[in-house]
Amino acid sequence: METWLSYRLADLLMFSPAIYARLFERLNETLWPGHALLAALSLAMLMLAGSRTGVAHRLAAGLLAFAWGGVAWGFFGLYAEINLAAPWFAAMFAGQTVMLLMLAAIGPGLALDRPRQVRHWLGLGLAIWGLVFHPLAWWAAGRPLAGTELFAVAPDQTAIATIGLLLMARLPRRGRLPLRAILLTLPVAWLLISALTWWALLTAF
């Protein structure tokens, strides 16, 4: 234990920032021109979640599950080549996929409320940030357009947008089950892991 405590976060880093950024370029190369379909599905998810029918809400939750499953399979499949811990992270994303599928199948689905409370507005801000501005921020920071991190492709954007959508959603307690808190756990956990990774990347190089 004493030995492990002597490691700094940066000592555990296995790859360089450039190689991490290249993952997104390579993913986008593989997906192109499928980005148009992804954008259409993302838009459809928002419209379905904002509609008034239960079936639409279930479809919206299903599409959000699809986004998480896509990241678990696509991004983490590639990330596993350079990070030995990636399969564990993939399992987290697969777990969230299953929970969102359950939300679609046996829960209320994803039904967005009109923004009335602080929680709603915070959620709206995060959803817009994750879906639109976070990818643009990378581009503005100098990363090539080909390396843009997108919702349903990159884990950070997917987690941020999901947290936003869950904060905006009508998710009543199911008996003793705090649905919202349960569904927020893995996205928040991933963002903490990602923040630590970026902290290590930025301080080690």
Binding site: M14, F15, S16, L78
Partner: peptide, 9 residues
């Protein structure tokens, strides 16, 4: 360490 961990890129 780190420098040659580039996966299949």
């Amino acid at each position: 360490w780190i420098t040659f961990n580039v996966g299949s890129d």
